[in-house]
């Protein structure tokens, strides 16, 4: 297995507090190109905070974020986007009353003179959704009429506008049924095939084994463990909950910050 010299996106020694709660403590994580990095953990383990730090929604109290080895400041989702890091948050941030095209381009609409270029936007919307092999009945339906999976697809498609290098997905399958979950997981595989680095945050460890190349386990705000994508469910569960499983196979020792040697 070849090791890329510099990870695409890394956090080094990142800590984040919310009042008295230590959401992240001295966390190191690397995200590489062509890789699906899963971040798992129990509720309150700090997963969403980590996603927020990567996506520019939270500023870390300590530590730094590196993009291709260079320190960057992500002080807003827009700043992260400008650097090629797009995020889909748990709340999808879709406006129910707007249709699919309107949602996809919200905040950065294509213009033709002073007016909106609906034709260009609608065509681009179909192109994106086709790439994702998404089954959305019509791009002119308000998103409130779509199913949970379709809404997720729209949110992911919006993140992909402008071809970001890193896509951060926060709990994309949390509210979905079995079939829709499979759809979203397929989507993630397709993202990796297209060369995006994907950070997938979830607490549904089982789902992730299907798509993850590496799995970072957070516990109480710390990186507890890093597994290969083929780690067993029992190992993950043990690492997430802190239960001890004798003879557990570990890729790394937990105390060396998850950096693979």
């Amino acid at each position: 297995m070849s090791e890329p010299q510099v990870p695409l996106l890394s956090v080094r020694g990142v800590s984040k507090r919310f009042g008295g709660v230590r959401a992240l403590v001295d966390v190191d994580v690397d995200v590489r190109e062509h890789e699906v990095l899963a971040v798992v953990g129990d509720n309150g383990a700090g997963k969403s905070t980590l996603a927020g730090v990567l996506a520019g929604a939270h500023r870390p109290d300590a530590g730094e974020v590196l993009l291709e080895g260079r320190s960057v400041v992500l002080d807003s989702p827009a700043a992260a986007r400008a650097l090629g890091i797009a995020a889909v948050f748990q709340e999808l941030a879709l406006v129910d009353d707007l249709d699919v095209v309107e949602n996809l381009f919200l905040g950065h609409e294509t213009l033709r003179g002073p007016l909106l270029d609906e034709v260009a936007m609608e065509r681009e919307a179909w192109r994106l959704l086709d790439q994702l092999a998404a089954s959305v009945p019509s791009v002119r339906d308000p998103v409130r009429t779509l199913s949970g999976g379709q809404r997720q697809v729209v949110a992911v498609a919006r993140a992909l506008l402008g071809s970001p290098r890193v896509v951060v997905l926060d709990e994309p399958t949390a509210s979905l049924g079995v079939r829709q979950t499979a759809q979203v997981l397929n989507l993630i595989v397709r993202l990796r095939e297209r060369g995006h680095a994907v950070v997938l945050v979830s607490h549904q460890a089982g789902d992730l084994q299907a798509v993850a190349d590496r799995i970072v386990v957070l516990r109480l705000g710390r990186v507890h463990d890093v597994f290969d994508g083929d780690a067993s469910y029992e190992d993950l569960l043990a690492a997430m909950t802190g239960a001890v499983r004798p003879g557990a196979r570990r890729e790394t020792r937990p105390d060396i910050r998850g950096v693979r040697r």
């Binding site: 406006v95 309107e102 950065h108 909106l116």
Partner: peptide
């Protein structure tokens, strides 16, 4: 226009509009 779309987005879901930039 872009302004009109912003109006509908802000009125429909202010938080989502903020996150969308």
């Amino acid at each position: 226009t872009r302004w009109g779309r912003s109006v509908r987005a802000v009125g429909g879901d202010r938080r989502a509009a903020t996150l969308a930039g």
